[in-house]
Design a protein around this nucleic acid. Sequence first.
DNA 1: GGCGAGCCACAACGGCGGGTTGTGCGACTA
DNA 2: TAGTCGCACAACCCGCCGTTGTGGCTCGCC
Lengths: 318, 318
Amino acid sequence: MSGGVDLDAVRTFVSVADTGQFQHTAAEMAITQQAVSKRIAKLEEDLSVRLFTRTARGAQLTIDGQAFLPHARELLQAEQRAADSVRPGRRALRVDVINRRTAPAALLRDFHRGYPDLQLDVLVLDDSGVDVAIAAVRSGAIDAAFRAITIPARRLPDGIKAVRVVDEPHQLLTGPAHKLAAAPAVTPADLVGHRIWIPGILPGTEWATYYDDLAAEFGLAIDPVGPNFGTEHLLDVLADSATLASLVGEQTRLLWPTHYDLRRIPLHDPTPVYPHSLIWHRDNSHPALATLHHHLASIRSRRRDTGIWTPAWATRQA
Amino acid sequence: MSGGVDLDAVRTFVSVADTGQFQHTAAEMAITQQAVSKRIAKLEEDLSVRLFTRTARGAQLTIDGQAFLPHARELLQAEQRAADSVRPGRRALRVDVINRRTAPAALLRDFHRGYPDLQLDVLVLDDSGVDVAIAAVRSGAIDAAFRAITIPARRLPDGIKAVRVVDEPHQLLTGPAHKLAAAPAVTPADLVGHRIWIPGILPGTEWATYYDDLAAEFGLAIDPVGPNFGTEHLLDVLADSATLASLVGEQTRLLWPTHYDLRRIPLHDPTPVYPHSLIWHRDNSHPALATLHHHLASIRSRRRDTGIWTPAWATRQA
DNA sequence: GGCGAGCCACAACGGCGGGTTGTGCGACTA
DNA sequence: TAGTCGCACAACCCGCCGTTGTGGCTCGCC
């Protein structure tokens, strides 16, 4: 029960399965036939199963070998993808999002669906904050970031570019017992006096800035404090509460038990939207970055410009 | 450019990423802290990238490390699946099909969709022929097989059971210039005098037996000979031919360029169906096998019993 | 500010895994 | 039956990777 599988052995196995002969593989991999024999033998011992039947003119897959083969190929491809994800120079396009349930994440899923051949890595930088993202883009560690730009455009570091690409409308999320649960739509003014609970927002982050401004603008009681026990817990509390509500992005896909009977209620007059900008470096020549720009250009036309609200700092941007 | 990645190093990497400390990982993996340090260092060298920033109270992922982490997890899962596919005793349910484009393969895809947690391996035994499949089931090398049983039920080896589960209707496949291309449906009798081309059928296989009987029954000219250049070639030839047609399973999903304009024409009065039986061993106690039986039972009711044709040997079965 | 604690890296050493060469054995062929 | 082809076993040996021992760095605490 060593458990561990040697990838070189797996590579050797696949080669033998393809060529049908230990010797071919030996030549191909520039080792001796005996080494191939040993590798296969060890792999068979590790898996405690026989992979080939040795005949006088080669090796033939056993049924176990046939079952193992596709998994072996998949394993090697996974290794390739893993190595490619950090390969300096020609790695996957690396894009940062604030979190995986916001509109940009959904947008990137669509992008990936449209260009499945492009290597794409979506990641969530641990320390939230635009500065961190900008620094990462500047250093070349990541290729792009979807963030809300809370600082004036002219103060961006040299070479850093940013364009507002996605406005994510917010919706009110309530349980069935909430006073606004039956409303077809509500305005921000309707929310005055109601408690809005958005747990897990750390002070000083983009989120905090946005919700602070939103609360100040409309006189709302947005309560960002309180421990974040995860989305499930939030939904759990909302489902039973007549006084608490929350705000979620329109495209945020949440899963909850049907008996929770939560409601999503659109916001109007105006609709608060979260302004996501794409941030990238002027000199970044990653080919997939151009493709991403292209993809975004085809989407940007769908953006609404009237009836929406954003913080003052967002309207100062290009 | 060693290229090869050591899975033990990857395991170590993931552990350090989770715990945040080399020492924790060392204790967890029952090795020394120095060994962990070396493994990570070597992995970083292999990938020529820095994965952690070492601090005074632990190790923190770099951005490259964050990008690598999900791929590393995926890689380890792939290793697990590969090992599980042959793990004696509790390996994945192993089911043989005649080929991956027939109805049983589609059925297994549905089965897998319905029970995604079950480990399932679909394989195509190289040497076609029922006997091979039966022998494999008998030896326990595979758990089940979808095959056409061409021998009487009573002659099955002891312990081997078989039940006819899927009848796959055949359709005529023609190019736009074919004389029958515009017909909404045809009968086998309509095919007399037309050339039916089904390349790649080896003599002595289940397929050959079936098509021989079909041809004899209705006086058809089914031409199984000729080299098999692959499906693309077959479609290519059909698209341009006014005299050649082929037979395909109703559920066979073929992809062809739209300008080929190929037609699938149902067969009636009677509809030739290919009788797939599930073959398994009475004493096989693999839990997923019971689930498969359950799944099949819920489907079997959809089988038509009238207006179909099968070879005589098929009707002799239970 | 100095001292101790915690955590990681470097150095020297040793065992063993995995490569090599050399040889043997079984199967198919002429 | 001799020859060839293809894989396995044996002996050897190098290098990798683990160990122990130690040093350096950065905290936090008195």
